[in-house]
Nucleic acid binder design. Structure first.
Lengths: 228, 228
DNA sequence: CCAAAAGTGTTTAATATACACCCATGG
DNA sequence: CCATGGGTGTATATTAAACACTTTTGG
């Protein structure tokens, strides 16, 4: 055990967003500081001495991207020596989910650009951030099978097909429409409204659904078994 | 973001062991240093500047308990300011599984005693270690439902009832013997030997089983769906 | 012969899977 | 009237769940 220790502690976040147009996307910043200046990276930064980890990541997200987050959960801690070329830095990572109406971004501290990238089109990233995204995506894929997911990613009201496309994007495979609907509705965390979808093209407009928040969060606690 | 940061990084481990006599148990040390001197705590300590997190926790386990570990996985990072009364310390926690034949312990550095405690009889602990054990136990409970568990906790050969009791101890509820056996054997990661259990009392001796390591680790990667 | 623990199978209920045609809208 | 996307049900296969008596051993 070392007499003195010289390790820095950072937090970084993989924030997922979803729109049917863009698919499953990740929030990235373009770094305005060394190292890896002008390269894309996950939003994040060093933790303050008297700041909780959650406060730190929320602060960094606000500073660097202007985003308000709907859901945030700890992902994993990366601490391999050498992952930061300057000093030893341990990064405690989080993953978050945001609704599309929170998509307006603004670059600030430490970042000269902010953007959403489709999960399949992520550019080369600074540090080990590529690997962190892989872990986050894997976690989300698993999460979706034992907890309801969607409330944190979709607008208040949405056509059922929107939820279906979200699940296909996360799981990265096709889903049978009829079986999916049967299964999801049986859980009872969705309410059907009488409103109809506004179309931007041809097709029969579907009814809009919304989450019953009480049931949704109850099932989130209890867990579900969701074998799609 | 702070100009300079003064946070320490530690690793701590919740090591689980299982014997049919003692049930599911956790490895604890009695602290030989301040703060919380002479109180029970999880094994762990500060990370060296050039040491990976995994190396650090393995080193601490060896130093403090003399134990060799079969399986170790990152659990969660605890970083609430004030969780250590002296300085800000962030603890990256791991949970581990060990076989009974590695149960011989020896206290060393920073510890003046080491002991196994049944999961239901854990004494009061230093820091937030009680909470860490709760999280670890919850994780193990979940893990057992989507990955085979047991190879890391049981001896090379064991009667089937041993696995069944292990699952009951982890899940903390009764299991139907016939359905459990049917289900487990169908996965195919167990091999039945012709050897019979040595008894320490009355009862019909059962055949001994052993894990087929190849299948076991394959299923560990693929994941299983284990609704007991 | 009694107590303790292991071995074993069937029936029923629930769930998962596979699968195709019609409907409402915009252009 | 064509293209697009939404809506809906049934039959079959698989899996889960409930459940009790017999066998082998030690004392």
């Amino acid at each position: 055990m070392p007499a003195i220790q010289n390790i820095k502690v950072a937090v970084d976040a993989v924030v997922f967003g979803y729109t049917s147009k863009e698919g499953l996307s990740v929030l990235l910043i373009k770094r305005d500081v060394k190292p890896f200046r002008d390269e894309w990276a996950l939003p994040g930064g060093l933790v303050g001495d008297d700041e909780s980890l959650e406060d730190a990541i929320q602060r960094e997200l606000k500073e660097e991207t202007g985003i308000g987050i709907n859901y945030l959960e700890q992902l994993y801690s990366f601490g391999q020596p050498g992952r930061d070329p300057r000093n030893r830095v341990i990064s405690i990572t989080y993953y978050g989910l945001v609704k599309p109406d929170a998509f307006e971004l603004q670059a600030n501290t430490d970042a000269n650009d902010v953007a959403w990238y489709n999960i399949k089109k992520v550019p080369q990233l600074a540090f080990d951030h590529q690997q962190i995204i892989v872990v986050a995506r894997e976690r989300l894929k698993n999460k979706i099978l034992y907890q309801p997911v969607g409330f944190e990613l979709l607008e208040e009201k949405f056509p059922f097909s929107e939820l279906e496309k979200l699940y296909m994007a996360v799981l990265d495979r096709p889903i049978d429409r009829r079986n999916f609907k049967k299964k999801v509705l049986k859980f009872g965390f969705l309410e059907e409204t009488t409103e109809k979808q506004l179309l931007d093209g041809a097709g029969r407009p579907g009814n809009l659904f919304r989450f019953n928040e009480q049931k949704y969060f109850q099932l989130k606690k209890e867990g579900i078994s969701f074998e799609i």
